[in-house]
Nucleic acid binder design. Structure first.
Length: 485
RNA sequence: GCCCCCAUCGUCUAGUGGCCUAGGACAUCUGGUUCUCAGCCAGAAAACCGGGGUUCGAUUCCCCGUGGGGGUACCA
């Protein structure tokens, strides 16, 4: 066992989904662990049992798995450490670092109100520290009187060298004697975290900036417990486009939602990694292994970052175009099948054709759904003509039919059936007709796909192959004849 | 109120005293490629929050404002 080995953890509370902010914290921890050959621990913070739900943690694990963030130890449940948390609290009590407090919530509330300031300005007045000697506290406690245990904040100042911010310090006078054990005997977050991090030998705590003000409390706990504290690294929060803390009203905040929007996990990790961190080079597109290699604590920013969905979409498009058709095929087939556009079995059987289709659609896709959304005309047995497009490109049905028939004759015999040859033939034909190539291409596109927008027509011809091309032209000619009549 | 963190184009950011006429990317706009759309290529517009210091010289260091964010619970 190497004691200098990096041990980090991600400790979400079971909220029922993995928030993008949490996902980024998890990613940073994971990246650090993988980069350094360390250990990544997953722990669910469920000390507040009233809010805990086993089912809620499932969504978090699912989100992490989707992102590819695998953990080496855990998932542990903070609630399982209850006895240890309590034991630590009593150690502090016996050592004189904590005391029993018999002030009830009601009394506290009154004092808060009586203080005459805003409720937040109130600090616990240490009533029980002075009014209830330890011996009396023990007696009342064993008599069953309800009480909490408070940590006695020492005088002085608490500072630490934060790995991203540098030195951060608090005057202890600004921190009240906080409760570590509730009336029901359960531990408060700050105690449980310290107790667990000690137990799990975590030596670097990387978490959001919102935990900065918890750090001095935790540091004091470490010291009172006589344990060497870990290093701390606080990463800036993620904000919405309006500069406010990212929340539901900004749109999707759960990684699961992005998954369903057709975002690739690699794009998501790339995006999240670049939110608050940068490699110092001008590279923007990173695979996960590249991130593991390049990531470092030193290059994490101090400033909170705005979550920009446009940038995510762009990155996703980049990742889609870098992903092979073979890798995209499973997801694509599943979507297409779910949409009722084709039989997955048959599609897979002609995998060459399937891959060609995906490659055709890829450059036009920013999210995975774009692939399926465009696929209809290629997979359908018969062409459904978009009337708006017909109004434009089949304006004179008789003429269009005539031209398509001529073209059909040429295509029937052209050899080889490749883009270059096909383009040559079509352009010759247009010239012979004395019209621009577009006058042939647009009606042909309509014949093949029924829509006015598609990849380059010659790529489409190659995808369909001669037989299906001729069939579709025949159908179109028939359609046009009806329109002409 | 008090404490803490932060401050470069609309957004993500580079920049650690002179190389900055402040660089890249997203988004926006304009051209080009072309059979449409997307893409791609080229270009444009766009920023150092304000005031004091320190210094020969500040985007960069210090202080004060201002602004934003976080915290201030028997939540995590």
């Amino acid at each position: 066992m190497n004691e200098s080995q990096l041990r980090v953890r991600f400790a979400p509370s079971p909220t029922g989904y993995l928030h993008v902010g949490g996902a980024r914290t998890a990613l940073f921890n994971w990246l650090l662990a993988r980069h350094a050959g360390g250990v990544f621990i997953l722990r669910i913070e469920d000390t507040d049992r009233s809010r805990s739900e086993e089912a809620m943690t499932a969504a978090i694990l699912e989100g992490m798995s989707w992102l590819g963030l695998d953990w080496d130890e855990g998932p542990f449940h903070q609630a399982d450490g209850l006895e240890r948390h309590r034991a630590d609290a009593f150690r502090l009590l016996e050592a004189g670092h904590a005391y029993r407090c018999f002030c009830t919530p009601g009394v506290l509330e009154e004092r808060r109100a009586a203080a005459g300031t805003t409720p937040d300005a109130y600090r616990y007045d240490r009533h029980c520290l002075t009014a209830v000697p330890a011996a009396e506290g023990e007696r009342r406690a064993s008599a069953g009187e309800p009480h909490t245990i408070r940590f006695q904040v020492p005088d002085g100042r608490t500072e630490w060298q934060d790995a991203v911010h540098g030195v951060i310090g608090f005057d202890n006078a600004d921190i009240e004697d906080f409760i570590i054990l509730r009336t029901d005997g359960s531990p408060i977050y700050n105690l449980a975290v310290v107790s667990d991090d000690v137990d799990m030998r975590v030596n670097l705590v990387l978490r959001g900036d919102d935990h900065i003000s918890n750090t001095p409390k935790q540091l004091m706990l470490y010291r009172a417990l006589g344990v060497e504290p870990p290093r701390f690294a606080h990463v800036p929060l993620i904000l919405g486009t309006d500069g406010k803390r990212l929340s539901k009203r900004h749109g999707a905040t759960a990684v699961g939602e992005y998954r369903h929007q057709g975002i690739l996990p690699e794009a998501m990790t790339n995006f999240l990694a670049l939110l608050g961190w940068n490699p110092g080079t001008e590279e923007e597109i990173f695979t996960v292994p590249e991130l593991v290699d390049a990531f470092s604590l030193e290059r994490i920013n101090h400033k909170s970052a705005v979550f920009d969905p446009d940038r995510l979409l762009w990155l996703n498009g980049q990742h889609i175009s870098r992903t092979s058709a073979a890798q995209l095929a499973d997801g694509f087939v599943a979507q297409v099948e779910a949409a009722g556009l084709a039989n997955g079995q048959e599609l897979r059987a002609r995998d060459q054709e399937l891959h060609t289709l995906i490659d055709l659609l890829k450059p036009r896709a920013r999210v995975l759904d774009d692939l399926c959304a465009q696929a209809g005309p290629y997979l359908a047995e018969r062409v459904t003509v978009d009337e708006a497009a017909a109004a434009k490109h089949w304006k004179e049905p008789a003429l269009a039919a005539e031209r398509l028939e001529r073209l059909r004759e040429r295509l029937a015999g052209v050899e080889p059936w490749d883009e270059e040859t096909l383009e040559g033939v079509l352009r010759e034909e247009a010239e012979a007709l004395g019209v621009g190539a577009g006058k042939l291409i647009h009606p042909l596109r309509l014949a093949l796909l029924g829509v006015a927008v598609s990849p380059g027509i010659f790529e489409v011809l190659v995808y369909f192959g001669r037989e299906r091309t001729l069939l579709r032209i025949d159908d179109a000619v028939e359609n046009l004849r009806r329109r002409a009549a």
